Computed example of a mutant assay.
Amino acid sequence: MKIFHILAGGPVDHYADFLYYESDDVQWVAADRGVFHLLQRNIMPVAAFGDYDSVSEEELRWMREQTTLHIMPKEKDETDLELAITWALKQKPDIIRIFGATGGRLDHGLANIQMLVKSLDTAIEMILVDHKNEISIKRAGTYVVEQNQRFPYISFLPLTETVTGITLQGFKYPLHNQTIQWGSTLCVSNELNSKKGTFSFTSGILMVISSTD
């Protein structure tokens, strides 16, 4: 299995526990100040992207001594994280996890979540992870979800205007063939009743968020 972990430049106190997701299959990629934080942890990225406007000149010199940096112009059409995600997708891994992408500016956080749609037309599972959430995006279909004590609450939010045919089995609050639209909280904060459950829907795109308090 080929797994890429991408570290963006968000606040350190919103990082998930990297060790929980670590394995021999993981390769790290970093964007902007995420490169600095990764190197501070003695983790060497296989690729590093950014204009590095969020680090000092001294920090940038130190980073250049540690690894090769793809230094991008400050004025460009993509964020540093988008460049890192685009590169990672081209490597065709099985899984991409994105860390350090929430907890700062709201516009950046929302844009980072929306970038999960880049994996929809691929076989790559892409997940945004922070200290309280795991977020993914799904097309219509049937999916198995396993109980996770770290993130016991599961919410389903429509990313398209309407999502139809939502059915939840094995959940505390089951549903059968329901439709939800933007602004609905019907599928917020559910829980599994057993070790495994299933969710399915027939049309639309759904955001799946596993969370803890």
Rank of each mutant, 00 (worst) to 15 (best):
H5P: 00
I6D: 11
A8K: 01
G9D: 02
V12P: 11
H14S: 14
A16K: 00
D17G: 10
D17M: 07
L19A: 15
Y20D: 13
Y21R: 05
E22P: 09
S23A: 05
D24F: 06
D24S: 15
V26N: 10
Q27W: 08
V29C: 13
V29F: 07
A31V: 11
D32H: 05
D32I: 01
R33E: 11
H37F: 15
H37L: 12
L38G: 07
Q40N: 14
Q40A: 03
R41D: 08
R41L: 09
N42K: 13
P45S: 09
A47F: 06
A48M: 04
F49S: 01
G50R: 04
G50K: 04
S56R: 06
E57P: 03
E58M: 03
E59T: 00
L60V: 00
R61D: 14
W62R: 00
M63S: 02
M63V: 00
M63L: 01
R64C: 02
E65K: 00
E65P: 00
E65N: 11
Q66F: 05
T68G: 02
L69Q: 09
I71W: 00
M72I: 08
T79K: 10
T79A: 09
T79E: 12
E82T: 05
E82L: 05
T86R: 08
T86V: 08
A88T: 11
D94E: 15
I95W: 13
R97S: 14
I98V: 14
I98W: 13
I98S: 07
F99N: 15
G100A: 14
A101Y: 13
T102G: 13
G104K: 08
L110A: 10
L110N: 10
I113S: 10
Q114D: 15
Q114L: 13
Q114R: 08
L116G: 11
L120V: 10
L120R: 08
D121W: 14
I124V: 14
I124F: 04
L128R: 04
H131V: 12
H131I: 07
H131P: 15
K132G: 13
N133C: 05
S136N: 06
K138G: 06
A140K: 10
T142N: 11
Y143A: 01
V144M: 07
V145P: 03
Q147M: 07
Y153M: 05
I154L: 03
S155W: 06
P158C: 02
P158K: 01
P158A: 01
L159C: 09
L159M: 14
L159H: 13
V163M: 06
L168F: 09
G170C: 08
Y173L: 05
L175C: 14
Q178F: 09
Q178I: 12
Q178T: 10
T179E: 14
W182L: 13
G183V: 02
S184Y: 03
S184F: 02
T185P: 15
L186H: 06
C187L: 03
S189I: 01
E191S: 08
S194H: 07
K196V: 06
G197D: 03
T198V: 00
T202W: 03
G204L: 01
I205S: 04
M207S: 12
S210H: 11
T212L: 10
